[in-house]
Design a binder for these strands. Sequence first.
DNA 1: CCTTGACTTGAAGTTGACTTCAACTTTTAT
DNA 2: ATAAAAGTTGAAGTCAACTTCAAGTCAAGG
Lengths: 143, 143
Amino acid sequence: MDIAEVAKRTGVPASTLRYYEKKGLIASTGRQGIRRRFADGVLDQLALISLGQAAGLSLDEIRAMFTPGGEPNIDRQLLLNKADEIDALIKRLKAMSHGLRHAAACPAPSHAECPTFKKLLKAAASGAIERRWKSAELKRPGK
Amino acid sequence: MDIAEVAKRTGVPASTLRYYEKKGLIASTGRQGIRRRFADGVLDQLALISLGQAAGLSLDEIRAMFTPGGEPNIDRQLLLNKADEIDALIKRLKAMSHGLRHAAACPAPSHAECPTFKKLLKAAASGAIERRWKSAELKRPGK
DNA sequence: CCTTGACTTGAAGTTGACTTCAACTTTTAT
DNA sequence: ATAAAAGTTGAAGTCAACTTCAAGTCAAGG
């Protein structure tokens, strides 16, 4: 496939594909003349990248977890750490979703009174602390 | 409370607090001399902002959902839409976490063969398409 | 009274993830 | 054969969310 075909099939712009290649997240199989050619596997890789991004991972982190060929990296501990992080995120997202639904449904004028809303705030507060760690932690994955 | 007190209690730097105030996410109760004073409620608001960010919302979106006083905005549909988006995200994150744990455990050399990994890729692919909607959708919340 | 330290401002700098641009080379269609 | 469409490059621009900086204000303690 040429770059336009990949772009068409995945919705990822050609400029982004070149950018990803430069960053080492995907690899072209070579050139036909001056133009890049991509194998079908790149479609899966791009899906994986997109999923990783949705999970809040940076491109550098994603690159650390998967080979440019799309296979998971050998560093099992890294993968497990990421899974743990994602699970923690899921917990907070659940609280958020629940809180939003409650806020939409509850006709109470002052949510400061409402126990459900308070629970949301409590979850939020604990999350706030974690957040400060996150960026530091993610940059130094080992130990 | 003065700005340093808020920063100390929440972990949010003073510079960020000023930035949030300029953006209209929080409000000071006024000035004592030249210095900002904040009511206790601002602590909850900051927790809420942090939670919103963890859910992947931009500051502009968060401002749209809550008044600067911290009360949820009247637009119930907006809140529900956000909750739906977050739930969809949770689904994909679960797939991601599960997939990562599997990848860490599975000694198979080629994950292209493995049904669990394939499931992850499928979840990723469906997400990849959604992602392109997201930004457009969020910018035009109504209809 | 005067220094010190916390606060103020607007402006400029930073980072990650891209996008856009200018200038150029290839393909492809007529 | 030639012109338009699509690809290439490196460099520069954009955007969100902050942070840092320079220059200044002000209250409190010695």
